[in-house]
Design a protein around this nucleic acid. Structure first.
Lengths: 230, 230
DNA sequence: ATACCCCAGATTGTATCCAATGTCACCCCA
DNA sequence: TGGGGTGACATTGGATACAATCTGGGGTAT
C-alpha cells in the first residue's frame, strides 16, 4: 500500500498542492515570491494543467495569490489581516478545544505535556515552530470535526510565515510566558476544567497577537488590490 | 463597461463558479445532485478546463464534493456538521459585527430596520431567506475585513440549503421570536450598545441552531467518507 | 436464487497545442 | 533629458485529443 502513496487520491494536482504547501509552510518560499506555472510543471514532470489546479486550491486556502492573466505569488498578509486571523482564532479555537477535550486520552495528554517540555529546550526557530504547531493542533486531534478543524488549520497555515519571522526576530525573549501558558493549558485539561482551558487558550492567542502587533515591520505594508467579494 | 461584464476577471472559471454557486444557493441544485463536467461545459459553451477549475473552487468553499476519478456532487451536510457551522458562526459573527458596527452609517442602520420590517410581510420561502441573508450580511457590510467577512459568507452559503428546507418545513411558526431578535439587534446597534448587540446576535444564532437540531430528518444521514485531513 | 467476475460505456484526469493577455524594454518625440 | 507610445517576448487561459479510472449491467458458476 505504501507504493501507491506517491499517487494518492489518484490525481497529480493534490500531490503538487501538498508539496507546494509544504514549501510555503517550511519557509522555502516566502510571501511575495513569484510562482511560475511552467517551473512547477517541469519540477514535477507533468503538464501545467494539474499545476494550475493546485494553485487554485492553494489560493482558496489563502496561501497563494492569483491575478488573472498575470501570475501567482505566495500570499502575504498586512498586519491588519494577520490580526484579524488571530482574533478569529481567539474565538474559535477554544470551541474546537471543547470538542476535542471530551475525547482526549491520557496518552494524548501526556504527549501534550511532553511537547510543552520539549519546547523549553528547542534549539532553533524551526524546531520551536514545529513543536508549537504540534502542541496546539495535537490538542485538537480528537475533535472529529469536519468544518472547524480544517478551518483552524487553514488559519494556522496562512499566518505561519509571520510566526516564523517573529520568532526569528525576538529569539528567546518573552518565551517564558509562552511555556507557562502551555503548561497551564495542559494542567487545566488534565483537571478536566474545560472552562479554564478555554480561557487560557483564548488569552494565549490574544497575548501572542498583541506581541505580533508590536512589529508592523514584519508585514506587508501596501495591500495592492485585495477586494472582499462579500 | 457592461459589455465586458460577461467576461469579468478575464477568466471563464470564475464566471462558471459564480453561476453554479447561484444555482446551489438558489435551490435549483440540491445537496446530493450529481454534477457532470461535460454538461456544464456544454451549457457555458466552453471546454471542461474552466469547468474543472470552477468545481475545485466551489469544493474549497464547501459547496461541492469532489471524488477523484469519479465525479462531483452538490455538497450535503450531516446534522452534526451543520451544528458545527452554527456554533462557529455563534463565535465569529459577533466579532465581525464589532468590526462593522463602528463604521455603520445612519442610512445603513435604517436599511437594516427596513429589512427587519419587510421580513414580517415576506411572502414565500425564497423572499424570507433572501431578506434574512441581506439583513445579516448587510450588518457586516462595513467590517472591511479580508478574512472574516468571506469566511462568514462561506459558512452562510454551505448551510443555505438546510435553512431553505427548515423554512419550508416550519412555515410561519416560531417566526415571531425571529423578528423580535432582529429588531432587538437593530435597537442595540442604534443605541451604540455593542456588547448587547454581540450577545443578541450570538443568542439569535444559537436559538436558530437549537431549532434546526429538532429536525434531523432534513440532513444527510450517512456521511460516506469525509476525512478531516487535520 | 444469489454472489461474484468481467467487460463495455461513461466520465474524469492529463498532455499538447494554440490564443489571449500582460510586461518590459526600446524608440520616438517634445 | 524625460515621458509616452509601441512592439516583441514571456506567461497565463482555454480547446482539443487521448489515456486512465470508475460504474453498472449481464453472464456464469455455485
Amino acid at each position: 500500500m505504501t507504493l501507491t502513496e506517491s499517487l494518492r487520491d489518484g490525481n497529480a494536482s493534490q500531490r503538487i498542492a501538498d508539496s507546494l504547501r509544504e514549501s510555503i509552510l517550511g519557509g522555502e518560499l516566502s510571501p511575495g515570491d513569484r510562482i511560475v506555472q511552467e517551473d512547477l510543471s517541469a519540477r514535477y514532470g507533468g503538464s501545467r494543467i494539474p499545476v494550475r489546479e493546485a494553485l487554485r486550491l492553494l489560493e482558496s486556502e489563502g496561501l497563494v495569490r492569483l491575478v488573472a492573466n498575470t501570475g501567482a505569488w505566495v500570499a502575504s498578509l498586512t498586519l491588519a489581516e494577520c490580526s484579524e486571523v488571530y482574533q478569529t482564532r481567539e474565538r474559535i479555537e477554544p470551541l474546537l478545544l471543547r470538542f476535542s477535550a471530551e475525547h482526549l486520552t491520557q496518552e494524548q495528554l501526556a504527549r501534550l505535556d511532553s511537547l510543552a517540555h520539549q519546547m523549553a529546550d528547542a534549539h532553533g526557530v524551526e524546531e520551536f515552530l514545529d513543536l508549537d504547531r504540534q502542541f496546539h493542533l495535537g490538542a485538537y486531534e480528537n475533535a472529529h470535526t469536519h468544518v472547524l478543524g480544517p478551518l483552524v488549520t487553514r488559519l494556522w497555515n496562512t499566518t505561519q510565515p509571520y510566526r516564523r519571522a517573529y520568532t526569528q526576530l525576538v529569539g528567546d525573549r518573552n518565551r517564558r510566558i509562552f511555556h507557562d501558558e502551555h503548561h497551564m493549558l495542559v494542567t487545566a485539561l488534565h483537571d478536566g476544567d474545560l472552562a479554564l482551558a478555554e480561557q487560557i487558550l483564548a488569552l494565549h492567542i490574544r497575548r501572542t497577537r498583541l506581541h505580533l502587533e508590536r512589529h508592523p515591520e514584519l508585514f506587508d505594508q501596501a495591500p495592492n488590490s485585495k477586494e472582499t467579494p462579500a
